[in-house]
Amino acid sequence: MSIQHFRVALIPFFAAFCLPVFAHPETLVKVKDAEDQLGARVGYIELDLNSGKILESFRPEERFPMMSTFKVLLCGAVLSRVDAGQEQLGRRIHYSQNDLVEYSPVTEKHLTDGMTVRELCSAAITMSDNTAANLLLTTIGGPKELTAFLHNMGDHVTRLDRWEPELNEAIPNDERDTTMPAAMATTLRKLLTGELLTLASRQQLIDWMEADKVAGPLLRSALPAGWFIADKSGAGERGSRGIIAALGPDGKPSRIVVIYTTGSQATMDERNRQIAEIGASLIKHW
């Protein structure tokens, strides 16, 4: 067993022997301040990774656009098919120029040779490549099948209805392509620590998230040296922004954090800054 596999296998073990965790309302004060600064709703939840206990939450059962955070769930569904012998990570998928959609920095470079399922998941999570996500959605049967996968996990809230990039439209009061912070946090925890996926697939999923290259201005910008984070960000229309993450000190994750916002007129930089400040408060009061 590799060191990384050992780390993920012992996530519940280490967490069980940690000192009790206590909620700190100071972080919620910052979440509410972010709402004021952005002029928009902000949803927040913080779960203990081992027990699933909610440590703090704000608007945990209000719907927010998922945006690209759905790509972690998508690759979880792909990995479940791999575990069941219905898919192979090494299978190569070929596609054409007509398949390319807006923001496809990886797939646009491989029109000639195609990409493997493993490479597509890596591109979808680490670079948020939209064509990679659409190609992977095709392998599982489309958005409705991802929703069905989530329902089978016990998540009857999260739903995907459309493809990239239309799913980022974020129309107010439109339930399409949305989740709730509580539902997303619980589902992410199941994917990373539950028995739904094999140990190898859980490790692969967290490795992809740990290698995320496009979430630097968010929670990662607030992390002290030595902290662990595996995350996936999302951005959408109407001032929408979000991030889902597993993080913790001492090089291992111990909490799940989900943050979503929508309806702001603020710039992307300002949305990023507010999420980073929430992260800084979380870490300060850990």
Rank of each mutant, 00 (worst) to 15 (best):
D83C: 04
I171Q: 15
Y260Q: 03
S240M: 04
D161P: 00
A280F: 13
M153T: 10
W286V: 02
F149V: 09
S51F: 05
Q86V: 15
I45A: 14
I259C: 08
V117W: 00
S233P: 05
S96T: 13
T262K: 09
N98A: 14
P143K: 04
A266N: 15
Y103W: 13
I206E: 09
T198P: 06
I93K: 03
T27E: 04
G251Q: 11
A215P: 05
T138H: 15
L167S: 03
I93P: 02
D48M: 05
A77C: 14
I125D: 03
K213C: 09
T27V: 15
S57N: 09
S240A: 13
A182N: 12
V257N: 04
A84F: 10
T27K: 07
H94I: 11
S240D: 04
T158K: 02
R92K: 15
E87W: 06
A211E: 15
R202Y: 05
L100Y: 06
L247F: 05
S128G: 02
G234W: 00
D129V: 03
P224T: 06
L282P: 03
Q204K: 09
E61P: 01
L197Q: 05
D207I: 11
R118S: 15
T178P: 00
E26Q: 12
L191F: 11
P105T: 05
L135M: 10
Q204D: 09
A246K: 01
R159L: 06
A132W: 03
T186A: 14
I256K: 00
I93W: 01
A200D: 14
I283W: 07
D83M: 04
H156D: 13
N272C: 05
P172L: 12
R189V: 10
E87K: 03
G263K: 06
I125T: 06
N168K: 02
R220Y: 03
L199I: 15
Q37M: 15
L223Q: 04
Q265M: 14
N173E: 12
R220Q: 05
R162M: 04
N168L: 01
E102A: 15
A246V: 13
K30D: 03
H151E: 14
D207S: 15
Y95M: 07
A132N: 02
M115Q: 08
A133S: 10
A34I: 09
D33W: 09
E270F: 09
E56K: 10
E195M: 09
M180S: 15
A132K: 01
E119W: 00
S104H: 05
Y103H: 08
